[in-house]
């Protein structure tokens, strides 16, 4: 049952990831990105990483994709940009490179087994501790308190940076409302 579901969602994720790359319209790419992220969230559930799955849906499929769709709406495309690139030498090289990289990764994953020091959180210990959320947050706020603070600093810098970048230049002619909306959107 679990492996069948894993296969189903894995195939869905791969299909919609191919859709992201090969859709002609960037809006369709963004929508199939939503499909990929939701299938990946389902895979996280199958791995019993429930908190990560919730964050995947909220953060990626919610916030980031909405931001993408918003920018696709702001940016107008010429019809030339909507075409898929023609298959030249460099494009063939791109296909070849990514195919070889992918087969290398898959082959490594296939031929090696995972080794390493086993951690202290087998599944039954997590259940005893009060579930995924409690175990994860206790671990986060005890062992990883400093990285947590650094992450908040990164987010602050990102907010300031995007406000500065999206600011309208002083003497530039009037533009469509993109800059203002970006400031509110972030």
């Amino acid at each position: 049952m679990t492996s069948a579901l894993f296969l189903l969602f894995g195939l869905a994720a791969i299909a919609s990831a191919l859709g992201v790359v090969f859709m002609r319209n960037p809006l369709m790419s963004a929508l199939s990105l939503v499909g990929t992220l939701c299938s990946i969230a389902a895979i996280f559930v199958l791995y019993e990483a429930y908190l990560i799955a919730v964050f995947q849906v909220l953060l990626y499929a919610g916030a980031i994709t909405v931001l993408f769709i918003f920018v696709v709406m702001v940016v107008q495309f010429s019809s030339q940009e909507l075409k898929l690139p023609r298959l030249g030498v460099f494009k063939m090289l791109a296909f070849f490179l990514s195919l070889s990289l992918g087969s290398l990764i898959v082959w490594t994953w296939w031929s090696q087994s995972v080794t390493g020091k086993a951690g202290s959180h087998p599944l039954n210990a997590i259940v005893e501790e009060g579930g995924d959320v409690q175990a994860l947050s206790q671990y986060l706020f005890s062992h990883y308190a400093l990285p947590f603070e650094v992450a908040s600093l990164i987010l602050l810098i990102a907010i300031i940076g995007s406000v500065v970048l999206a600011q309208r230049p002083k003497k530039a002619p009037a533009l469509s409302g993109g800059a203002v909306c970006i400031r509110h959107g972030v």
Binding site: L18, V21, P26, S29, F95, S98, L99, L101, T108
Partner: peptide, 23 residues
């Protein structure tokens, strides 16, 4: 691995900067 290589393909193949960010 498969999804990562699709992402690499997207970065190398598409010329639209938005699709590159999605990849």
């Amino acid at each position: 691995g498969v999804i990562f290589s699709i992402g690499v393909l997207g970065v190398l193949y598409r010329r639209n900067i938005l699709v590159v960010l999605m990849s």
